[in-house]
């Protein structure tokens, strides 16, 4: 049985889709079978970031409504053969997602893949709650600024109450992925410090992804940043996050800082 991960944030534009694609590609490069599912029905982007936009025939809504088989809707990546995409529909809206339909699709994907990564839409409505519903693990993507942090706090509250695991009295595993981190701006006090974000959200840190032109460049050529240029700083940060996701105990480095006084940050696992 595969693991279901939801990549979520509450706030839009913080890097959910970029992170879903990058983590999916990084996991798949180790030979594991990965599917990335776009839950952003009506505003899909994952197909673009993964460079599959011209190969979409059927989508998640078609599968849920019985108009297509799951195997017809899955798109295999041309670069990594164990990486798949299940695109969202651009023409429908989120009301087309039914709880029963989503449950069926996730159950089928879980039995066929090692990792099912659900790219959640922004917001706290139907699309977002259905994306997190069946998750075993949640990755909360947050930018180091106050509005993003508060929205993430809200999402963590929902993860602890609205997911199937929470309703069964289990605890859903939650990780913080701090994205678009700019060391210079943090230094000047224009951004929240890593410590402050961790203190407010008090969930373990999965990784810090530096703000970088490489991310934009990768999206524009339609490749997850971990495939576009495996040597660039954000890609390396995503690779490290992937290893931590698989349970490795790796110290987190704050991008742009030479010394690693960061053991103390990773050591701080609250709540």
């Amino acid at each position: 049985m595969g693991k279901v991960i939801v990549v979520t944030s509450g706030k839009g534009g913080v890097g959910k889709t970029t992170s879903s694609a990058a983590l999916g590609a990084a996991l798949a490069q180790n030979g594991e079978k990965v599917v990335v599912v776009d839950f952003d029905v009506g505003l899909r982007n994952l197909d673009l970031v993964m460079g599959a936009e011209r190969r979409v025939v059927y989508d998640l809504v078609n599968v849920i409504q019985g108009e297509a088989k799951l195997t017809q809707a899955l798109i295999r990546d041309k670069r990594v053969e164990t990486l798949y995409l299940l695109p969202a529909s651009q023409t429908r809206d989120k009301d087309n997602l039914t709880p029963e339909g989503v449950e069926k699709v996730i159950a089928a994907l879980k039995s066929a893949f090692d990792w099912v990564i659900c790219d959640s839409p922004a917001g706290i409505e139907r699309g977002a709650t259905l994306a997190m519903r069946h998750a075993d693990v949640a990755i909360v993507v947050t930018n180091p600024e106050v509005s993003s942090v508060r929205d993430s706090d809200r999402i963590i509250g929902l993860l602890d109450s609205k997911t199937l695991k929470a309703e069964n009295g289990e605890r859903i595993e939650k990780h913080l992925l701090l994205t678009r981190y700019d060391a210079n701006r943090a230094e000047r006090g224009d951004m929240l410090k890593v410590d402050d974000v961790l203190e407010i959200l008090s969930i373990p840190l999965l990784g810090i992804i530096p703000e970088s032109m490489d991310v934009l460049r990768a999206s524009n050529v339609g490749a997850p940043v971990t495939l576009a240029d495996g040597r660039c700083a954000p890609a390396l940060a995503y690779f490290e996050a992937t290893r931590r996701l698989k349970g490795e105990d790796l110290p987190v480095t704050i991008p742009g800082e030479k010394r690693s006084f960061l053991g103390k940050i990773f050591g701080r696992k609250a709540a």
Binding site: V146, R150, D151, D153, R154, I156, L158, I200
Partner: peptide, 22 residues
Amino acid sequence: RSGQSIFFPEGDVTIVGSVGSG
């Protein structure tokens, strides 16, 4: 967490943890 609400008109409330913004 933000958006959550604890309502207890009967008496004292003790939170072992933080109360988030919102």
